[in-house]
Design a protein around this nucleic acid. Structure first.
Lengths: 211, 211
DNA sequence: GCTATGCTGTGAGCGCGTTCACAGTGTGTG
DNA sequence: CACACACTGTGAACGCGCTCACAGCATAGC
């Protein structure tokens, strides 16, 4: 049964990408797809695609490949919580607003229900249709709004304290944009997304490859 | 000699993180640091930190650990091009502006020299102190401005065409925010940074761990 | 001076995600 | 009816990054 086995984080990431690609195919009216087609669009090997799909509990046929609609449904079952998950965003700067607008209505199963900012100008207002609270209320609101996922867009020095407040309120997952390793209790998942780091990787290899 | 050996992308990313952490220590007036201290802040093992530092060509002493200033200098030598690298940003949306403001003046060795946007309202103007060009000029401007790194903040359907134009102009590295695998010639490095994917990973593991 | 301590540098080994290569299977073709 | 073909599903093997564990070494304490 899918869901009981341990799934690697990389697999989950790829599956998420497959869903985006499959949605594109579906909108183009394409009904079936083969592993090597997905592998080209996703930039991974065909064997990888097949293994990933098996972990979803879905099977294709050697004759017609995978049914696009069915595969999307399998991915939905795999990735999404049946009744959705509530998301909060801490730090409504440029980055925070970009993330907020990015997810506005695009992921119905992930509802952005609260913003937090340390700036009194922002807290109390409604931004992008979501209410912004002062940062002291994090634990309280995270708990009352049943937030399970927090997007952390605050400066590095504040990140740990904010993370602690979120965890105290019951958050189970953190998407951390700050360049520090967060200390969290077991059972809380942290994904780091450091843009500066990524850019410097690109800069490094651009230099090494180019000369 | 460092620079000649093949270095893993993960190592480069961690080294970039070390530099951020070390800068913080330096500003706090701390002169020396041990591998286990860095390892705690970076969220990796101490052995990992030591191995990474060796690849820089720097050595500490068993008595005093690593000299913060010297280590930062070694990282600078390792990561940065002596005369810097020019960066362009394509797609001046919410995300693009966030990235632009994020790097404004923070990385002196990475100069943001050009913006591109398909919207005629934006192209022609100067945004955040950088001139914005129409998207048709990418190849031309990338070449004339000697841009080696491109940040791609355009929608997925446009990403491949823009990437091709950038490569044609001589770009050697791409930071791609679009959820597609770019096809690029050998020698061009692509780093994918898909925020939706990362968030869905967090959502998945928040659900699995929490229940 | 001799031992204890704690760090760096590193060879060896491990684990895990990925890839290889092929068996299984049904369809299309002559 | 037999054969060729293309794709899925998967056991086995590979490779690479990471970790373990220890040698080397200088200082601190007695």
């Amino acid at each position: 049964m899918p869901g009981s086995a341990v799934v690697a984080a990389e697999t989950v990431g790829r599956v998420s990408l497959y869903r985006v690609l499959l949605s594109g195919l579906q909108q183009a009216g394409i009904k079936g797809v083969f592993s090597h087609q997905l592998s080209t669009s996703a930039g991974v090997s065909a064997a990888q695609v097949r293994r990933d799909i098996i972990t979803l509990g879905y099977s294709g046929s050697p004759q017609h490949g995978y049914d696009v609609a069915e595969l999307i449904e399998s991915i939905d079952n795999f990735l999404d919580a049946p009744d959705g998950q509530n998301v909060a965003l801490v730090g409504v700067g440029n980055l925070g607003r970009a993330v907020a607008s990015y997810f506005a209505g695009r992921r119905p199963k992930l509802r952005l229900v609260a913003l937090f900012d340390i700036d009194p100008e922002k807290s109390g207002r409604v931004i992008c249709g979501v209410r912004c609270y002062p940062q002291e209320k994090i634990t309280e609101v995270v708990r009352s709004e049943r937030v399970s996922i927090v997007i952390l867009g605050v400066p590095a020095p504040a990140a740990q304290a904010v993370a602690d407040a979120c965890v105290a309120g019951g958050a189970r997952g953190i998407l951390n944009f700050a360049p520090v390793a967060l200390r969290v209790p077991p059972g809380v998942y942290v994904e780091n997304l450091d843009m500066a780091r990524s850019l410097e990787k690109v800069a490094y290899f651009a230099r090494k490859a180019g000369g």
